[in-house]
Design a binder for these strands. Structure first.
Lengths: 171, 171
DNA sequence: CTAAAAGGTTTCCTTAAGAGACTTATTGGT
DNA sequence: ACCAATAAGTCTCTTAAGGAAACCTTTTAG
């Protein structure tokens, strides 16, 4: 199916999706966060084909998101654990879950709720500004060129965008 | 390639990914958040094939994430805009971008920075607890069964999980 | 009268995903 | 000693999704 790679794009979203945007990958990671570690456990729980599971676990390991740890010799068996890089994907899964809880339950109740250990309460993840702690949403955020922005790409975006004022750097 | 559907899974992450987890979809949405609205603009900016772009825009419209709005008659032309449901996906993109900014820049500088209009400062999105406003991460959150949890599925997860204490409901 | 722009549709080819059989090493049961 | 089961894959075959490029329709511009 010769899928195009996003990894050469000059964009953190694209580069992230190039790794974890493949079919099944985020569901595998969800299961890891739930405590699933072993090949057969992933396979039976997800109903994924062995070939694809092998492929995805190899990719995630190669990218340093999971690491293989032996849990027995003879025969040698490994389990897959999250690295720090992998654990740092937790907010991505929480965001996906929060959206699904709001928009995709089809009238059913929410299957999973998280408890925040530090305060002991059931929690809803909230996205807030690192500076003022106010809520962040699509309406109160404005993209601006970062230090690594390329002038050529900015020009292109301004040209095709409906609002050319976006991406003006008036910091 | 007869891809399996995640939509019947009893999980908000799976149901969300069934819609927006397809190849290209989140990059299209990223472009919409940047102000891109039109077919040819998506096509040239992303380098996506027309067939796939048509398919994705139709799906996103059918799911109520984008809506088609006419911007001229004669010939009739539409642009694609976010609905509230679509705007609510912003945290997903922010989470992906934050992870990429940390782990996938390969030594380069960050291409895009967001300004929080409400306080006027450059901001990093932070995920906090709705109750105590403390930071949320993979280490200080514990999944528990929600009101819509199925006992059968919980039992299965406990069986295959490395830590059977997870998903005990001690709220 | 021709070209270009916008938003697709159609065709052909390649390749990823799904299903399921097979492999290897070891243990447990009879 | 023999059979089945478990764990973690590998291999083969088929189907359908993605990529490339040509084609279509309507209208305006030169």
């Amino acid at each position: 199916m010769q899928r195009s790679s996003f990894s050469d794009m000059h964009c953190s979203v694209a580069r992230t999706l190039d790794i974890i945007g493949e079919w099944w990958t985020l569901l595998i990671l969800r299961d890891v966060f739930y405590g699933v570690r072993r090949f057969e456990a992933f396979r039976s729980h997800l109903g994924i084909s062995r070939k694809v599971l092998t492929n995805r676990l190899q990719r995630l390991t190669a990218e340093g998101i999971l690491k293989k740890v032996a849990y027995q010799d003879n025969p040698l068996r490994h389990e897959y654990r999250l690295t720090e890089k992998g654990r740092d994907l937790f907010p991505v899964l929480l965001s996906l879950m929060k959206w699904g809880d709001r928009w995709q339950t089809r009238g059913e109740d929410i299957p999973v709720v998280f408890v925040h250990r530090d305060c002991g309460h059931k929690t809803m993840p909230q996205l807030v500004c690192s500076h003022c702690k106010g809520e962040l949403n699509a309406r109160n955020m404005r993209p601006t060129p970062g230090p690594g922005a390329s002038e050529k790409e900015l020009e292109e975006l301004r040209r095709i965008s409906v609002n050319p004022k976006l991406f003006k750097d008036n910091s």
